[in-house]
Write a protein that binds this DNA or RNA. Structure first.
Lengths: 329, 329
DNA sequence: CTGAAAGCGCTAACAG
DNA sequence: CTGTTAGCGCTTTCAG
């Protein structure tokens, strides 16, 4: 049996209340008393029972990270990176972290109803209904890699516009004018941002680029390769391809290779995300680094602020991106 | 305020004990009574408070997955796969899952001392001291992707020997005799298994292969590429390289490309893991599939058995591998 | 099959 | 600064 606060109380000769204070609010206990308590605790191998604390305090100090995404979730390097940041940041706090995917998350079982989770970080394409439901139950919510109109909640996103600009301007600086965007069908938010950015920036630079230069594909190598093949068989074949993530870019490289094009001489390719695959490809893929880890950490900070009752927690936090020039463009 | 068992008791006109039974042991309650309880609960939006349950029952129904690995943890596709399997399996049980990395796992704060975790799945290179410590505290332990001599605990591993055989025999069947193994410095267990398997199987096939055909490298593309370059500049250059994971194999491919070798004609390469990068490489990488997800699921099953007090839970569970032939070999 | 009542280990007024 | 005491919401004997 583990020892309890009573055992410590008895051994140290102070009340249980004091033992409790010695651990939860040391500053309320006189130095000498405190030491007596700690010594007794040491002897008894005592350490507070978190369950009992939660019960008495009526709060759990528990938050959750919910990945709202179809298919591979934690297996997606992007979300794994965010998750890593969240785990890392949560670890520095007193909050305990639960990690789930939307597929197996049970609202009823995981929220205030049974007093388990006090705050949730929603990653990716969360449904607005889920957000309202959570907020209605008094759960703090923050969004990561997404934004949602009409809600009062903090969002942490990457600088989508800036990222697209870095990729595009790099290509332009290398002399490319006929640039196509191979756009993976990601969440509506992401797709939208990148789409709009691409068009605006291309136009700002006077590129002869229009909607025909944007080709959608599924976010798989195969789909991207197929889509790229079409792009490359047009009469006015683009000289550069901007893939909206690295998997898509890898697909483009593959299509180019199969068509016998030399990279980057006959076709330049850039990606987005700066995933680990960039270094494995040949030539290595030029990409725009997204600081997923930072996004995760910031999400935790925002959630903490919310839970701490801070007024004016920033509604949107934008994490800057960084171009990583390699050999593919 | 959320409703409690008392509210339900009052509304339904039965005692709290009965309400409790109706939810936890329905078979102990008469059909009609049970329905009354459920109806009242429905009206009140009642659902049991897990914290209070844990408090009263003196158990938490909580398990943890601890990744014991340096550096990228959840970011490692391999462990992410295991994690995915674990999350998936845990979700079908009543156990709640905590996910941590060895780096930020605090023994004191997460184990029976404060009654939080009842069982732990240790992934990768766990320290024996950690295992004994946990077992001493009465925590159930299972190992995944590792084995440990001198301990009484279930291990779930991939068929390392069989995997190496599949890769090697494939290469042999393609006519290769001079095959080198590029071995990433993974955990001692994994490294050992693969090393031994390679030598034994090569010898069994009468290949002129010895320890000089095994080259160690760090598990990064760069290190692998460097190591492979050396291998390829030997007078009796190998005609095939077996990388002990796909990242290493990608490094080998890169080195070969830079030396101007055509793949697979002048150098065949196979990997191990069947990670997502296989399909992104050109040519696509032939690899041996490891069913990480299954490994994760089985770990949970073993842990459950342990916690259920089953006698003779299998000490070692081996998950078969499968060769995936692509164009690199 | 159901109810009464005693906890589970800790916290938080409140009083001193 | 410290002690008393009444819970937190649920489970679980023990009776009936």
């Amino acid at each position: 049996m583990n020892s309890t606060i009573y055992d410590v109380s008895r051994l140290s000769g102070v009340s249980t209340a004091t033992v409790s204070r010695a651990f939860s609010n040391p500053e309320l206990v006189r130095e000498g008393t405190r030491r007596k308590v700690y010594e007794a605790a040491e002897v008894l191998h005592y350490s507070p029972n978190a369950i009992a604390q939660a019960m008495a305090r009526q709060r759990t100090d528990r938050i959750a990270f919910l990945i709202c995404k179809e298919g591979a979730t934690i297996l997606d390097e992007f979300y794994a990176g965010i998750c890593d940041g969240i785990m890392n940041a949560a670890n520095r706090t007193d909050y305990e972290l639960m990690i789930s995917t939307a597929a197996d998350w049970d609202l009823a079982a995981n929220t205030s109803k049974n007093k388990q989770v006090e705050g949730v970080i929603l990653g990716g394409n969360a449904k607005p209904e889920l957000v309202s439901e959570l907020q209605n139950r008094g759960i703090a919510v923050v969004l990561v890699n997404n934004r949602m109109a009409g809600f009062d909640l903090p969002c942490v996103v990457s600088d989508e516009y800036g990222g697209v600009r870095q990729a595009l301007e790099h290509l332009i600086s290398r002399g490319h004018r006929n640039i196509a965007m191979l756009a993976g069908r990601f969440s509506p938010y992401i797709l939208n941002e990148r789409y709009r950015a691409f068009l605006e920036i291309a136009q700002a630079h006077g590129l002869p680029v229009d909607a025909r230069h944007i080709k959608l594909c599924d976010p798989t190598v195969e789909s991207a390769a197929e889509a790229c093949r079409e792009l490359l068989s047009r009469p006015d074949r683009p000289t550069a391809i901007f893939g909206t993530n690295d998997v898509v870019a890898a697909g483009a490289m593959k299509a180019a290779r199969r068509l016998g094009l030399r990279l980057p001489e006959e076709l330049a390719v850039t990606g987005l995300d700066d995933a680990s695959v960039c270094g494995m490809l040949e030539p290595e893929l030029t990409s725009v680094h997204i600081d997923c880890r930072r996004m995760g950490e910031l999400s935790v900070e925002r959630l903490q602020s919310l839970l701490a009752g801070d007024e004016n927690v920033p509604q949107v936090t934008v994490v800057p991106t960084e171009l990583r020039v390699r050999r593919s463009a």
